[in-house]
Design a protein around this nucleic acid. Structure first.
Length: 426
RNA sequence: GGGGAGAUACCAAAGCGGCCAACUGGGGCAGACUGUAAAUCUGCUGUCUCUGACUUCGUAGGUUCGAAUCCUGCUCUCCCCA
């Protein structure tokens, strides 16, 4: 199966410039690139789609170039944005760049013999360039009329677009020119929202260099319920363990709906077609077992984090959602307990505050602040929703004391099935 | 500038002197069922010293035994005419 066919059955193909497939099937190693702007301290799972496409590209025997948007990140892509964005500070950009670069290195194979991945920072294309040079040598080749016809710009004509963001497509186009000249890069890939920018690059190469290059886009990943992919109530799902704990990351995939699971397992894992089709079949037989979600969550967590992180995440899930009794909690060493509860909101109190036994209501409000009001606590107790150390609180006169601490240092509070809090006593 | 309508809890929207902490819908939270899903059903959704008390219906006063409800000033919003 060739690269384009692979993308197609996985649902990763949107459109191409005619001739792209022929180029890739010649049996030669083709260089293709995708750009990643360092707009956040970490890539999110939306960006992961593009990384995965680069990996498929590499697996198909071609040579992937990951372009770090050191320059484009300074300007800001108007694509898909209804308002002008604030520029990021240069310091922040520097931090973002370091992180994004590390993440790209984590996924792509830079040691491959025949087709090692290449990392390029597009800042290098511009750092020694004069504005006037840019205007004379680059800007002269595309008309404003042409640039304004792009959706990304056109949709902003009402609300306004700065000259800076307007110039973005010219920068991205010139990236392609440089990659074409320096690396003989023949293909640019990206999300479907990037189509306009990719075409600008193709056009610019035709005019400046007389070269014929190609472009492929992938569809926007969507969810069946219409909500935005890659976000939870708590915000974006990031690839960095510091920003989205491996546990939350694992949970995100585990909670995917049945229809989405069939779609996502094709997009986000490298399992081959027979394996995936067998899994889907198995899942349809007995959706309750959620084999798809589990496998998806496992594969992606290992790929992004590690086998070890996956095991911790599974263990955490079984304690948080399973029948973890107080005894099993007591049996775990403190270090593991803390990692199980990583990402769970934590409250710190002083041990002196627990010398006498105090009522659960006071403990959860005045002492720790887990709940905003005492009425809230009473409601939770009435609704049979509140547990402390996995034991249901059924009466609002119950008390808590130092003897109830797990490992002599913490209290686990649950409100309902999904809201966990940890009180650290030190 | 003249005339009219309105301002109620997270949102929408009833209530128009005591039965109002305030109908109903949405949202949110929880419970049941389930698969840590969807759908469905149920409860909750001002605070507290919680079978009761206290503070809330734009804002400041007033009438009344009693006001979200009536009166007055103020602020803001909308509509019509100029």
């Amino acid at each position: 199966m060739n690269f384009i066919e692979e993308l197609k059955w996985r649902g990763l193909f949107h459109q191409e410039i005619p001739g792209t497939e022929d180029l890739l099937n010649k049996g030669e190693v083709v260089k293709g690139y995708i750009g990643f702007d360092p707009t956040a301290p970490s890539l999110g799972i939306g960006n992961m789609v593009q990384i995965i496409i680069l990996k498929h590209f590499q697996r198909a025997g071609h040579q992937p170039i990951a372009v770090l948007g050191g320059a484009t990140g300074m300007v800001g892509d108007p694509s898909g944005k209804s308002d002008e964005r604030n520029l990021q500070s240069l310091d922040q950009l520097e931090i973002n760049k370091k992180n994004v670069e590390a993440q790209l290195r984590h996924f792509l194979d830079f040691g491959a013999e025949k087709n090692p991945a290449i990392l390029v920072d597009n800042y290098d294309f511009y750092k020694d360039m004069n504005v006037l040079t840019f205007l004379r040598d680059v800007g002269k080749h595309l008309t404003v009329n042409y640039m304004m016809a792009k959706d990304s710009v056109k949709s902003r004509m009402e609300t306004g677009i700065s000259y800076t963001e307007f110039s973005y497509q010219l920068l991205q186009a010139y990236d392609f020119v440089q990659l074409y000249k320096q690396h003989n890069c023949m293909l640019q890939m990206g999300g479907s929202d990037q189509w306009g920018n990719l075409i600008s690059g193709v056009e610019l190469i035709r005019r400046m260099e007389g070269g014929e290059v190609y472009a492929v886009t992938s569809p926007l990943v969507t969810k069946t319920d219409g909500t935005k992919f890659g976000k939870t109530e708590k915000g974006n799902v990031f690839l960095s363990a510091d920003m989205t704990s491996p546990y939350s990351f694992y949970q995100f995939w585990l909670n995917v709906s049945d229809e989405d699971a069939e779609k996502f397992i094709k997009i986000f894992t490298f399992l081959d077609r027979p394996t995936i089709e067998a899994l889907i079949e198995e899942h349809r037989q007995d959706p309750g077992r959620r084999v798809l979600q589990k496998r998806l969550a496992e594969e992606v967590t290992v790929m992004v984090h590690s086998q070890e992180d996956l095991e911790t995440a599974i263990k955490a899930s079984s304690i948080l959602f399973g029948k973890g009794t107080k005894e099993t909690l007591q049996s775990l060493p403190l270090r593991d307990l803390l990692s199980v509860f990583e990402g769970v909101p934590q409250f710190n109190i002083d041990k002196a505050q627990l010398t006498d036994s105090i009522s659960v209501i006071d403990f959860l409000t005045d002492v720790t602040g887990v709940f905003a009001s005492k009425s809230d606590v009473r409601r939770a107790i009435k609704g049979n929703a509140l547990s402390i150390n996995s034991e249901k609180i059924t009466n609002d006169t119950e008390t808590i004391s130092a003897a109830d601490l797990i490992n002599d240092s913490l209290v686990w509070v649950q409100n309902g099935k999904k809201n966990n809090y940890l009180v650290l006593v030190g």
